[in-house]
Computed example of a mutant assay.
Amino acid sequence: MKIIFHLNSMGRGGAEHVVSILARKFSEAGHEVIVATQWFSENEYELGEKVKRISVGLTETDDGKSRISKAFLRLSRLRECFKREKPDLVISFCAKANFRAAFSLFGMKTPLIVSVRNNPVEDYKGHFIATKYMEKKAAGCVFQTPDAMSFFSKGLQKRSRIIFNPLDEEYLNITSDMVPAAGERSKRIVNVGRISAQKNQLLLLKAFSKIADKYPDYTLEIYGDFQESELLDEITAFINEKGLKERVSVIEPTSKLKEKIMDAALFVLSSDFEGMPNSLIEAMAMGIPSISTDCPCGGSRLLIDSRRSGILVPVRDEEALAAAMDRVLSDNELSDKLSRNAMKITDRVQPDKICREWEEFIDYAKGNKSET
C-alpha cells in the first residue's frame, strides 16, 4: 500500500513524533511511505531510509504574494502531489493539514484519514466551514481522547477510533533496576515542551517559586525553545524578580533527552490544554515521578491513575501545583510508588501495538465511504 502522511513539518512536536514512528514502522512492514510537509525545520525527527520526504509548501519566490494566494498555492501543490503520487491512502495530522488534505482531495476517490492532535476547542472552533467539509470528506478520524471526539459531528464519530500515541522505541528497554530510588535522584525538576502560552511554563515557575526556599538545593530545567517573544520577556522578568536566575535553566531541545532527565526528581507538565502529551508518556516510561495539569482534552487523565502513577492538578492553579510538588519532593515513599506505577504505561503505548491499531483502522477506513 502507498501511504502519504501530510503535516506542516517534522519539527520536534508531538504530532511529528507520532508520524515519525508510524512512517518508519509502516515502511519497515513493506508499505511505500511518503511524508509531505509544508516546510523543513532545523531540528527534525528522523524518518528512516525507506521513507520518502516531499516538500509541498511555499518557496522563497512566494514570499511577496498575498495571504489568499499563498493559501491557494499550498492547496494546489498538495493536490499536485496527490495526483502525481497516486497514493492508496492519505493520512493528515493537525487542523490546518487536515483542512488542506480534505480540500486538496476534492473530487478524488483517495480515502483520507484525518487525525486530531490537540484540544479541538482551540483548533477547530473558529473554522466552521472547513471543519464541516473535513468531517464529510474524511473516511475516518483518529482521536486521542473521548473528549476530543465529542466535539465533532456524530457522523465523523461513527467513523473514528481513539488510539494512544506510540512510545518511542528508545524508551522500551528501561527496566526497574535502571530507575533510581527517590533518595538517589538528582535534585532537578524538569519540564519538556515548546515554551508557549499553551504549555504555560510560567505557571510552573510560579509554583516553583513558592517552594524554592523549602528546597534550596533543587533546580528547575525547562527543555524547549521559545516561539513567542513576549513570553520570553515575561518569563525572564519573573525569574529575575524572584531571584531564581541561578536555579532555573531553559535548555534547547535535545535528541539525548532520556540521558539528560532520567534521574530527575520530578517531571511537571503545566499545560493549559493538550492532546495526549508525549513528554508525559516518556517521563512515565522512564519512571520519573510526574505531575500534570488535568487539562483538556483529557489526555493526561487517561495516562495518569491519580495518586498511583502520578498526580493531577487543576489547570492554572499555582497553589495546587506547588502543593503537589511539595508532596512528592518531601515523601520518598510516595515518589517511589509513583515511579513504579508510572512505568506500567509502557504496556499501553507499545509502538508495535499502536501501529497494529492504526493498521486495523486503515483497513476499516479504506473500505469505508465518506459522506461525500
Rank of each mutant, 00 (worst) to 15 (best):
Y218L: 10
P111D: 08
A36N: 08
A365L: 10
S55W: 06
R24Q: 14
G155I: 00
L75I: 15
D263S: 14
M262N: 10
K199I: 11
F40M: 12
W39R: 12
R316N: 14
C94W: 08
A29C: 03
T372R: 03
R12T: 09
Y171N: 05
E42C: 01
N98W: 08
S255V: 09
R100C: 02
A101S: 15
I162P: 05
E44N: 06
K258Q: 11
T145P: 05
Q157N: 07
M343N: 08
E234G: 01
E333I: 13
E357I: 02
E46C: 00
C81F: 04
D352T: 10
A102F: 07
F208H: 05
L58W: 03
A181H: 09
L338S: 07
S27W: 07
F5A: 07
S370R: 14
I251P: 01
T236W: 02
A182N: 06
V121K: 12
M343H: 09
S335N: 08
V192I: 15
I195Q: 03
K256Y: 10
A29R: 15
E32Y: 01
S290Q: 06
K2P: 02
M1H: 12
G287C: 08
P120F: 09
D88K: 04
K366C: 15
R84P: 00
G126P: 02
P120H: 08
R77H: 07
G14T: 04
K214A: 14
C297W: 01
E319F: 11
E228P: 04
D331S: 09
L202V: 02
E16F: 00
N240A: 13
R161P: 00
G57E: 09
E46N: 08
I239V: 15
G107I: 11
C94M: 15
I163D: 05
K242M: 14
G298Y: 03
E241R: 14
V190R: 03
V116D: 12
L202R: 09
F143H: 08
G13P: 09
D233H: 14
E170N: 14
K256F: 08
F26A: 13
K137G: 03
G243W: 04
K96P: 00
N240T: 10
R159L: 13
I3G: 07
V268G: 02
D147M: 12
G243T: 04
H31R: 01
F128N: 05
D317V: 06
V250C: 11
K52I: 14
E357W: 04
C141R: 06
T131H: 01
F267I: 05
Y218N: 02
K242S: 07
T175S: 13
C355I: 14
S279A: 15
L220I: 09
F273L: 01
R67Y: 12
